[in-house]
Design a binder for these strands. Structure first.
Lengths: 253, 253
DNA sequence: CTTAGTTAGAGCAGAAATGATCTAACACTG
DNA sequence: CAGTGTTAGATCATTTCTGCTCTAACTAAG
């Protein structure tokens, strides 16, 4: 939850206060505090990838809350909106300040508006999703292991406020994006093999369905055929990987 | 745009001001004004239904703006958030106050956060969708034709602020909901014939595709087969309708 | 009453999608 | 070097889906 040093600025109003038909300015309306909270999702490499299991684990970034707060000690990174700031910029700023992370294109998820959701007062929170590759997170995780860490989204630990609902919404949105396009968030590089692509999609889908069919369709053949029209082969082949070498592909368009 | 008489309340803060680690209260953070704007979508009956064309027209509710404002004279209904109010409640209130309309379950669409979107100052707008049957709107339209009217969403007239984008988002969301379920917003009653159902879905989809196939699949047979599992027949048959009588259906679950 | 126009609903053949099978090509182990 | 395990990619039979056709049942117009 946001808790930076506040800038002691006056409430928002235009230079020449606008007055409406009843002679009131905007400042006469009650104004909630507005915060952004972000579920940063990434694929963490599994320490000991069980044979046949996905080598990645869909994880969410947590930051340690200030000393002395009640409840869970870890939460999603967030911040209050600064004067005139765009929501996406506030998200980017919060990630830089709280976790030393750059990059990611924040996407709005929903506004959480329960009046009592924050014991500090009336706070609206705009939940966001940011998908960031593990490589871009690694530095921050190593530099501040006491303040920043990853948690798997399956069997998620208790989180304060409605952060659990935010993570759930973020995962839903991510799965929706990955349902019909090959790695749209570029968790892989520009070129990749089919296996690499499938590992990413399986980790995000959360199902191991290596062979077993599951409602919603993600099986070896189905997956390949669904992604095929959005891929084009580069001539080059993978080397050094296990099994028969695969052509490397890149996304079309 | 909202412009009611403001309640001269102080900015939001808890009874016992919460102080964070730097001793600041929430009121020390700059706070934007928060408004809700709602695209009320309905199916207006067509005056002269051309033969073969859908008898409904997907329309959005507009309210007249106060005298003397620049730009378009009609806009989406909206209001500023009251102290401690839920967003959905503010939407319901704005519809009652501005248009005398009750009912509808508002759904959040997105937050519009351009700092300069409103010349009166820093205003965040949370866009909403409400789907309301024409019958519930008819009274208000007849009672206040000078203040409330419907406009077709195809070839939408110019609207102030980013209201055109809000309508576009609302239509997109409505189409998504109607893509795989029979009339989920209950624009029809509990029982209806297949033709009535198809007229509603075609009006929402915007395509006339009576026979002609279109990418995205909505053809007579395809539509019937897609909706079939979500419908169950009541024994009764329609009477007085044109063509062969149809069984009346109701939604399952 | 007859004819034209419209809709409901079943039936059918061709098209497309699915899941399995099979072979090729590599790494790794002993 | 032979054997095992893994993956890539093509091929195939079967299931499922799609769009069309056909008949039945009604209204409205002449």
């Amino acid at each position: 939850m946001p808790r930076n040093k506040p800038r002691k600025q006056p409430p928002a109003r235009s230079a020449k206060p606008y007055r409406d038909s009843s002679g009131a300015t905007l400042a006469d309306y009650p104004q909630p505090s507005v915060a952004v909270d972000t579920a940063v999702l990434t694929l963490a490499p599994r320490a000991h990838p069980a044979p046949g299991a996905a080598p990645h684990r869909l994880s969410v970034l947590l930051v340690r809350r200030p000393e002395g707060v009640d409840g869970p000690q870890w939460a999603l990174p967030g911040t209050f909106l600064h004067q005139g700031e765009r929501l996406a910029d506030a998200v980017t700023r919060s990630l830089t300040e709280k976790a030393g992370i750059t990059g990611g294109h924040p996407a709005q998820l929903a506004v959480f508006d329960e009046p009592d959701r924050d014991e500090r007062g009336w706070v609206l929170s705009v939940a966001h999703l940011a998908v960031i590759g593990y490589a871009a997170l690694d530095d921050a995780l190593l530099a501040h292991p006491d303040r920043v860490r990853l948690a798997p989204v399956s069997r998620l630990e208790p989180l304060p406020y409605d952060h659990k609902a935010i993570v759930a919404a973020a995962v839903r949105e991510l799965r929706r994006r990955y349902a019909d396009r090959p790695d749209p968030e570029h968790l892989l590089g520009a070129r990749f093999t089919f296996r690499e692509l499938r590992d990413v999609h399986e980790a995000i889908a959360g199902t191991t369905l290596h062979h077993e069919a599951v409602a919603g369709t993600l099986q070896k053949d189905t997956f390949r055929r669904a992604m095929d029209p959005h891929l084009q082969g580069t001539g080059t082949m993978s080397t050094g990987t296990i099994g028969r070498p695969s052509q490397r592909f890149r996304r079309t368009r």
